[in-house]
Simulated scan of single mutants.
Amino acid sequence: MAKTKAKAGGDLWDSIRTLIYAILIAVGIRTFAYEPFHIPSASMYPTLLIGDYVFVSKFSYGYSRYSLLFSPPLFSGRVLDSEPKRGDVVVFRFPQDTSIDYIKRLVGLPGDRIQMKEGALYINGQPVQRRRVEDFEQRDHFGNVVGRTKQWEETLPNGVTYRTLDLYDFGREDNTGVFTVPAGHYFMMGDNRDNSQDSRVPVETGGVGFVPAENLIGRAEIRWISIEPSASLLKPWTWFGAFRWDRMFTGIR
C-alpha cells in the first residue's frame, strides 16, 4: 500500500512538473519569439480581415515592458533595440490606454513629415506612388459579392508595396495638416484609410497620435488561421465552411 501511495504521489508530481515546464515554455515563446493576435476590426482591410489570426515576431524590434506577460514596469525603454521599417505591419499598445493592442502599418519614422492631401499620402513633401487597381470585393460566407470598394496599390519610398481602400472621396482624414514625427516615436496608419483610428487623429481627440517606441510589441509576420465572422462557437456546423483556406499560413506585407 505504501508503495502504491508513493507511486501515486510521484505521478502527481511528475504531472505538475510537466505542466509547469509547459507553462514556462509557452510564456518564453510568447515573450521572446512569437505571440498570436486576433484581428477584431476592419481598419487594416484589405491586408488583414476580421477573423484573421496572426503571429507577431517579438524579436523584430527588441523588447520593452510590453513584451512581458502582464507588462510589469521592470524597466523602461527597449533592450536589444532594432529600428522598424516603413511599411511594417506593427502591433503596439494604444498610447492612451496601454491595456489595448492596436495593429496598423508604420508609414512615418522619427523626423518624417506626414500629410494627407485629397486621400493621397505624402512623406517629406513627396507623394507616395500609388495606382488604382481592381475594386476590393466583400463576400459573404457563400462567396457572393455583397460590396465593392475602391482599391489602390501604394509603394513607399523603400519599395514596400501594399493595398489600401478608399471608402469615401472626401473622408474625414483625407486632408490633414503636416505631422512631424518626434524623436523616439512612429506614425501609424490603417490600410482601410476611411475606417481607421490611427496617428492622423491626435490624442487630444481620443486618437492614436504618435506612437512611442516603447509601445511597439512586434511585427505581424504570418496569417495562420482565418475564419469568417459568421461562424459561431454555438453552431459547430458553421465552422468548416467559415475557414478562409486561401489565407492560411500566408505572409503579411
Rank of each mutant, 00 (worst) to 15 (best):
Y45K: 15
I227H: 00
Y21W: 14
K85V: 05
L165S: 09
V208P: 11
F75Y: 12
S76Y: 06
V203M: 05
S99Q: 05
E153T: 14
R200Y: 02
E154L: 05
G209I: 13
S41G: 15
P236A: 02
W13M: 14
W224P: 01
G9R: 14
E83T: 10
Q126Y: 09
P157A: 05
D97S: 13
G77E: 08
A26M: 13
D166C: 04
F170I: 06
E173C: 10
G125C: 01
V178F: 11
S71T: 12
F70Q: 09
D198R: 00
V91L: 02
T155I: 09
P95G: 05
E137P: 01
G251K: 08
P73E: 01
I217C: 09
A242E: 00
N175V: 06
H185W: 02
G28F: 09
R131L: 13
Y162M: 01
R148C: 08
T155P: 14
L69D: 07
E228F: 07
Q129H: 12
L165T: 08
V128G: 07
S99F: 05
I103L: 03
S230L: 03
G111T: 04
Y34D: 09
T4H: 08
N215F: 07
V181K: 03
R223C: 09
N175K: 04
H141F: 15
S99G: 06
L165N: 11
S82V: 10
F240H: 11
V91M: 03
R193W: 02
K117L: 11
E137Y: 06
S199R: 00
S71F: 15
F55P: 12
T238F: 02
R130P: 00
Q96P: 13
E173K: 14
G207L: 07
G77A: 09
K58G: 03
P36N: 10
N175G: 04
F32Q: 05
G190C: 03
D191K: 04
F92I: 08
M188G: 00
R78M: 15
F75K: 04
V91S: 02
T180I: 12
Y186T: 01
P40S: 08
A22P: 10
L74V: 13
I29L: 15
R139A: 07
D135N: 15
G184V: 08
T176L: 03
D166V: 04
T250I: 12
